[in-house]
Design a protein around this nucleic acid. Structure first.
Lengths: 126, 126
DNA sequence: AAGATAATAGTAATCATTACTATTTAGTTT
DNA sequence: AAACTAAATAGTAATGATTACTATTATCTT
């Protein structure tokens, strides 16, 4: 894997911008300092970095994927008013994989919990 | 809401076929008995029926949506080998919404748990 | 410095889903 | 039962996110 300025910028952009940006948002941000970066390059590297474990890819139903530079295990809430994504830590799910194996003989590789609702701020401004 | 033969067929198809079919699969099945039904009609009615609570729409990351005629609350596991979707009942998640509200002041509307792994059958045939 | 190969920019293609529109159908009114 | 109205359909076009393709450029190695 060869170094590229583009990949480095993509990584630091996801790490710095805590908004859980989409590929398109990363593209917009980077274009300010590197105007002719290609959207395909952004997609390719975001996926590469996610496979590499340098960032996390958040797949949301019927929305663009988002990317997260926070690596500690956590889940995500998405506000259905402002569409922002929030990090959330939960202990409830410990042992879930084992329970499922016991009851269903299904080997859990990973699971995704996407929580939908209204965030604190949006609730107050209603 | 007016009756249509198409909508009725779409509903019974999802109820009968327990494979959690995609819109395209529903379309293929129905075309055998109603050859000139339109794919748009299938999509429109699947969404209508889901909004109506007659069926459940399962949104999976980077895959076509699936539809489920089983209405009792449950979650879904998807096998990364055969791509089949399985129903699963879990008690672990009771109280999750309240916990989240307590810790994050986020009003949970709904949450989706998508479990990824290898199903019993695929594991044995490896 | 030259050669090999990975990465890029820019564009085209893909795929699931939705939008659009003229026509048909269901349900209602006379 | 014919006429009317509004919802639903078939068929096609459009959308939007993402991936594929290809000629060119950049990185790394000898």
């Amino acid at each position: 894997m060869k170094y590229s300025k583009q990949r480095e910028l993509i990584l630091t952009t996801v790490r710095k911008n805590l908004i859980h940006p989409t590929a398109d948002q990363v593209y917009s941000i980077i274009r300010k300092t590197m105007p002719n970066i290609s959207l395909g390059t952004v997609y390719r590297n975001l996926n590469l970095l996610a496979e590499n474990g340098d960032i996390i890819k958040i797949s949301l139903p019927n929305q663009s994927d988002r990317f997260d530079g926070t690596l500690e295990p956590h889940y995500h809430m998405i506000c259905n008013k402002c569409n922002k994504v929030f990090d959330i830590k939960l202990d409830n799910l410990k042992g879930l994989s084992d329970d499922i194996f016991k009851n269903y003989q299904f080997s859990v590789e990973n699971f995704d919990l996407i929580i939908n609702g209204t965030c604190c701020e949006c609730k107050q401004s209603q």
